[in-house]
Design a protein around this nucleic acid. Structure first.
Lengths: 192, 192
DNA sequence: AAAAAGCATTGACCTATGTCAATGGAAATC
DNA sequence: GATTTCCATTGACATAGGTCAATGCTTTTT
């Protein structure tokens, strides 16, 4: 239990066995079946979830009922509605499982206590959020400056595993395109 | 010197006078004239800059020579090419001054030493990056799910000061639109 | 095994945004 | 104060992407 979580932790900040045990007390394992929600829009987000196994997505739903995928998370990734988690405001995103999944949950109180008592946890958190920030900035840059064709190509190059595991219309949603448009973009690319 | 920097620091993490003096040793003031570069694409990003006065932008330039603004930074904000700063890779963004500006710079070595020696600096850094992450996620969400008209309206509501100070074509660039399109969007909005 | 649901593709058509060029005014520079 | 540069706007036209509807295939459910 929590194997991958600690593996990931140790590659960023090295822990002793005692520290691992100390942190483990604050962690909750959770299994989620495909399509089950971890979080629904309007509820406060109570957890940060680390994916041990499976795949999840966070997404918003607009007035017309269209879903817009904000983030995918597969093994080794973290997912949450961070704004809601930090402020206790109602979540603006939904999070659900794309595949049957196993998670390591960190509750808000656990998160706060760990930050106060374990400097290494704060470092781990800082490195995680920094990495997420840099990744998101790259995504933003490509959205405002690249053609959809190039964006799909680079998504394929960076996340081939996600392309394999996730239905194409979700990739389209993540890219801010309709499924039809992504289908046509792909068709155009085959030629070359 | 560094007044605003410490004011901002203290609202996030309270410092003693001694700690302020300790940190101040690592800070460098810098003035930048309008249009001067703080960073040019290709150079390694050596600083994180806190804006004491003035306004800056970071932007990328695509193959066609079009500029795409990634971020604005006015008084109290921080700007950098974080990926380049952390990895020493060549910067992919340019940063320049939109107005004559005064900055507080933190060099890479200063940043590293402060993180190692001052837990409060790590907390400050973590809170900053977390806030920046949440803000950027909101921007991303609105780009992939809102009409340009709504996006401009909400940009106006959130950053009225930037709209006042920055030429409209830069707002367009930030929104991923051409100046012509933003001009038309605005025209359509006047009616209502 | 049969039925239902989910998914990718395609066509016809529509809308938003981009491109290019011209204009006039404002601001910066000399 | 004159000149130049920068900037926002507008028109005509081109293109990317969205919408709606139909089809056939695959996966899931019963």
């Amino acid at each position: 239990m929590h194997e991958l979580f600690f593996e990931s932790f140790n590659t960023k900040v090295q822990l002793t066995k005692e520290e691992e045990l100390q942190i483990a007390k604050y962690l909750t394992p959770k299994k989620l079946r495909k399509k089950q929600y971890l979080l629904q829009e309007g509820d406060p987000c109570k957890y940060v979830a680390f994916v041990e196994k499976g795949a999840l997505r966070s997404y918003s739903v607009d007035e017309k009922g269209n879903e817009h995928i904000i983030q995918f998370a597969i093994e080794g990734w973290t997912i949450s509605d961070l704004y809601s988690f930090l402020t206790d405001e109602p979540a603006t995103y939904n999070i659900d499982a794309i595949e049957d999944s196993e998670l390591t949950l960190i509750s808000k109180t656990a998160h706060e206590e760990l930050l106060l008592t374990m400097p290494k946890f704060e470092t781990f958190t800082r490195l995680n959020i920094t990495g997420a920030y840099v990744a998101m900035q790259k995504r933003l840059t490509s959205i405002i400056s690249s053609l959809s064709e190039d964006r799909y190509e680079s998504f394929n190059a960076i996340y081939p595993d996600i392309v394999q595991r996730v239905p194409q219309h979700m990739i389209a949603s993540y890219m801010g395109l309709t499924p039809e448009t992504l289908s046509r973009v792909r068709k155009k690319m085959v030629g070359r």
